[in-house]
Amino acid sequence: MSNFRIALCGNPNTGKSTLFNALTGLKQHTGNWAGKTVEMKKGVYTYKNDQYEIVDLPGTYSLYSNSLDEEIARDFIVFGNPDITIVILDATALERNLNLALQVLEMTNRVIICINLIDEAEKLGININEKLLMRRLGVPVIKISARNKTGIPMLLDTVSRVISGVIQCTPFQIEYDEETERKIKILEPMIDRIVGHDISARWLSLRLLDGDRQLFEQIEERKARNREVLINGATFHKTKTGIK
């Protein structure tokens, strides 16, 4: 029996909470994370003898930290060590929702894309070719209806198979214009040296080009905290909240 941690993110109004409720039933509580005063809903479910803790992140339109909620969601995906991140998309507004999914694919390796409200979409005559999306995006894409609880067994199975490594994810990375790509190439090795390989250097380069210094200061802070733990001999394992 092992314990795994899942981050659940998505746009507002995508039925994120409905999925969270469907997965965890009433086994939920709100807890703080990493000393922040921010409350996040957590829940637990068991599947094939493994225990999964799901963290319901605030619904956001992007992960560029324009607001407190976006910062919380982003920080958890990057620093909270989730074993997997589920991005939940609204089947009836796929275009805007995919925008967020593409951002997550740049940030982390193990991602499952979950297209919710598939029943609504069918009613509106929207047909989604998830196999094609899966090929294009390089991660599992699953159609569900959290309301009617369809597709959930498939989702649970995929989660466990991605975590165990049976399914390999190769998240699609957006290619930007030549100019931006050239800049990324310059920053990437510098970032690699300073931050290490734990966080995608490509993504960090992009964030830095976008002017997000605060993110780097946070990384330094977390590193310093981890070093202290090591030096004080409190534990030789990195803390759960530290950098992977």
Binding site: L94, N99, L137, T180, D210
Partner: peptide
């Protein structure tokens, strides 16, 4: 740079939807 990043994201999303989604109604 932000415009370019988000613009690119949206172009990609748009392309994905064009390829992967069909509307019957």
């Amino acid at each position: 740079i932000r415009d370019q990043i988000v613009g690119q994201l949206y172009r990609k999303s748009h392309q994905l939807v064009k390829e992967g989604v069909s509307f019957t109604k």
